[in-house]
Design a protein around this nucleic acid. Structure first.
Length: 428
RNA sequence: GUGGCUGUAGCUCAGCUGGUAGAGUCCCGGAUUGUGAUUCCGGUCGUCGCGGGUUCAAGCCCCGUCAGCCACCCCA
């Protein structure tokens, strides 16, 4: 036997046992987007490397050490997308969607980052993303947060997540604040840990994010971004908070919430959970007013968020009825060759006549005992038995697999009506 | 990328201070003729993650490697 090939590290198969959870989340999300008038956009998984370098930022970890970058046959540098926003902006720009227009868009799909895999962190992972273009806020900011809040409600996981908010200010004020912060930390350089010393050079705002308890005191005394906001950012942030208050959405202002991608500005937020260990952010986003211009377009205000499906599904418990909604209605047991040649066409006929009927025909023969076992395992509510006896009398034997009820014999001609009555489906 | 823990049948796991592997489950067959999920009986399945080494002898010890988990880091 040849040596078997395994999946690439950090890239997971999603098995039939798990797919109902994915489908449930995907369906809920799609409905949610429709209910807010957002439209789906689909982008390629591979983009020019330059796109991510210019948007996410040259010195971020994602770009520096986590991208799947390769040369194609033409010698062009391509990259498996590590996130969706850059692609979405590129696509919208390229097709003129941003030309004096408002766009409310969503997408979903796999993203790729070469990190060390851990629970809730994979090399291929899946995100839903939402982006709104052409609106300066803070009204859309609130809309996006309310929208995400509604998703948790829909999925019954509101108790598992909490909202953290901050404002990074405009690009200019962030630049100024950055200087103030660098001065502060430089004055205390001896107290910085190694990571923070490194960040002082590369991305000083991230020092605030440190999990090192020894850094906590230093961080608490650090100048706060929120005290250095420009008037407009401050005003917008207040409005946003007011809307959330009125809508009854609770939140915590986290002055140390900064986000790792360079393009964020003004409003930023995260939905976090304490149930997932260290990978506790399940949804995060913020405003990126400078990005479109940075990628060569006309200055366009924008905001978006992304949520991680693997993490979300980890938290998800789906209700019984949803769990069973893919179950078969009927498993058709066929005894003998005559039944076989009659049974498959019958099944076709029933599927034609009854919209949404979930019916599986036994394949591969077997004794009635083994066929009944398969019927049970299939999850079907009813077993239909078709054998020589039934053929002779033009009937089907119907056995109830999930309830205590005597089995019944039904005339072939009555089966369609019988099914409609018994499984609550309507004719086509 | 750094550190720690783990890796035995498809799945969940046992295997004492080294002596060439077991349980439950799953699957298949049977318990009077065409009836599942319960019960009883029988059966199939492993180069003990992979590669080296130590030893008369290794699943148990050592080294390497791959994979998973946890923390750091990063982030959804």
């Amino acid at each position: 036997m040849a040596k078997s090939i395994q999946a690439i590290r950090g890239m997971n198969d999603i098995l039939p046992e798990q797919t109902p959870y994915w489908q449930h989340v995907e369906n809920s999300f799609r409905q949610l987007m429709q209910s807010y008038g957002y439209q789906e956009i689909r982008m390629p998984i591979v983009e020019s490397t330059a796109l991510f370098k210019r948007s996410i930022g040259e010195v971020t970890d994602i770009v520096e050490k986590e991208m799947y970058t390769f040369e194609d046959r033409n010698g062009d540098s391509l990259t498996l997308r590590p996130e969706g926003t850059a692609s979405c902006v590129r696509a919208a720009m390229q097709h003129g969607l941003l030309h004096n227009q408002i766009q409310r868009l969503w997408y979903s799909g796999p993203m790729f980052r070469h990190e060390r895999p851990q629970k809730g962190r994979y090399r291929q992972f899946h995100q839903f993303g939402v982006e709104a273009f052409g609106l300066a806020g803070p009204d859309v900011d609130a809309e996006l947060i309310l929208m995400s809040n509604r998703l948790w409600q829909k999925l019954g996981m509101s108790d598992d997540v909490s909202l953290e908010l901050n404002s990074l200010g405009s690009a200019e004020t962030r630049q100024q604040y950055r200087k103030i912060l660098v001065e502060y930390f430089s004055a205390h350089e001896a107290e910085l840990d190694d990571d923070s010393k490194r960040r002082l050079q590369t991305n000083p705002l991230r020092i605030l994010d440190s999990k090192n308890p020894e850094m906590q005191k230093l961080n608490e005394n650090a100048p706060k971004l929120i005290d250095h906001l420009d008037a407009e950012s401050k005003q917008d942030f207040e409005v946003l908070c007011n809307v959330l208050n009125d809508a009854g959405v609770s939140y915590k202002i986290n002055p140390r919430l900064v986000r790792g991608l360079d393009y964020y500005s003004k409003t930023v937020f995260e939905w976090v959970t304490d149930k997932l260990g260290t990978q506790g952010t399940i949804c995060a986003g913020g405003r990126f007013d400078g990005l479109v211009e940075q990628l060569g377009g006309k200055a366009t205000p924008a905001i978006g968020f992304a949520l991680g499906l693997e993490r979300l599904i980890e938290l998800l418990e789906i209700p019984e009825d949803v769990q069973h909604e893919n179950n078969l209605n009927v498993y058709l047991v066929l005894m003998g060759e005559k039944a076989l040649s009659k049974g498959l066409p019958l099944a076709e006929q029933w599927r034609n006549e009854i919209l949404g009927l979930k019916l599986q025909v036994n394949c591969g023969g077997g004794s009635i005992k083994s066929q009944m076992k398969k019927a049970d395992k299939s999850g079907a509510g009813l077993a239909f038995i078709l054998g020589d006896d039934e053929l002779e009398k033009n009937i089907i034997t119907v056995k109830f697999l999930r309830e205590k009820k005597e089995q019944e014999m039904i005339e072939l001609s009555q089966i369609t009506d019988y099914l409609k009555k018994n499984i609550g489906l309507i004719g086509s």
